[in-house]
């Protein structure tokens, strides 16, 4: 057995006629920050619900720590699933006391978790008075109780302001450096790219791809060129071996290559073909575009 904390095998689930998940399988290696990426409605939350036993899969199996799923294993996982779920009539501290009691821990971690998530000052306020961002923070605090080996976050930065988002990302990196495995679902590609080491991409319940972020989301560079006679430039570039695609945007051509090409090589090649470029620049392909390309 490899060192996986979570393995999914052919998980399927339907809601009526809607296929929420269609035979999804992947492994989450120990010590990774594993992103589950997909647009809204792709099945991320359903998937996380199934592995936490709040939803029932129609087919398929999963294992935590290479063991059959069992409720006591969940006590070793800190989870924020979809929405922060707390007793509205209780304060942050009273709510965390319940969480700690269920997890079988004492109250000693509560203050620390509240400090780490910036809620300590408001710890005696009722949950119903919290803003969306504070509720989200409390859910993260609850997940941190008992120092779990695995953290499972569903859209952890939902409802947070930009500073809060940065804080949570820092926290995730910090937790990972402490040796914890973090599994997070997100529809924000940028977020996954910034914090994750591994990624699985879901679309309409199908797993498109899974693996290292660097491999799956590798960036292809685009080189933009322009000249007076655009038609000639286009035919010259299209004929060049190594060019993958040439696309015309108004007065600019966007060129992608197989393998590595520098702007210098492009300039030289065009000049040799008798074309003087009036514009030459390198552009990182946007991750958003990559994401749309993958999921369409």
């Amino acid at each position: 057995m490899e060192n996986n904390v979570l393995s999914l095998h052919q998980i399927s689930k339907k809601y009526g006629a809607v296929q929420a998940l269609a035979g999804v399988s992947f492994d989450v290696p120990s010590g990774s920050v594993f992103g589950i990426l997909g647009p809204n409605g792709s099945g991320k939350t359903t998937l996380l619900g199934i592995i936490m036993d709040v939803l029932k899969a129609d087919q398929g199996t999963y294992s935590w720590f290479n063991e059959q799923p069992h409720s006591s294993l969940r006590k070793r996982i800190g989870t924020l699933l979809e929405t922060p779920n707390f007793y509205h009539y209780y304060t942050a501290v009273q709510n965390l006391e319940i969480t700690a009691a269920i997890k079988g821990h004492g109250k000693q971690d509560i203050d620390g978790a509240l400090q780490m998530t910036g809620l300590y000052e408001r710890r005696h306020s009722k949950f119903s008075t919290y803003s969306l961002g504070m509720k989200q923070r409390l859910a993260i605090a609850a997940a941190l109780l008992g120092d779990p080996q695995i953290l499972l976050f569903d859209e952890p930065t939902n409802g947070l302001d930009p500073a809060g988002i940065a804080e949570i990302r820092d926290l995730i990196r910090k937790l990972n450096q402490l040796g914890k495995t973090v599994i997070m679902a997100s529809h924000l590609l940028d977020e996954v790219e910034k914090v994750c080491t591994h990624v699985a991409i879901l679309k309409k319940g199908n797993l498109l791809t899974a693996g290292l972020v660097n491999t799956v989301l590798s960036n292809e560079d685009i080189i933009e060129v322009s000249t007076d006679d655009l038609a000639k430039l286009e035919s010259v570039l299209t004929a060049w071996p190594g060019v993958k695609s040439v696309q015309r945007f108004h007065t600019i051509l966007q060129v992608t290559f197989e393998g590595e090409f520098t702007t210098g090589q492009v300039n030289q090649y065009c000049f040799e073909q008798g074309i003087v470029l009036s514009h030459l620049s390198i552009k990182k392909k946007s991750l958003e575009a990559k994401f749309i390309e993958l999921t369409n």
Binding site: M52, V54, S72, K75, L81, N85, I102
Partner: peptide
């Protein structure tokens, strides 16, 4: 949900 997630069966 949360009670189950937190480790109750």
């Amino acid at each position: 949900r949360q009670n189950i997630i937190d480790g109750w069966s």
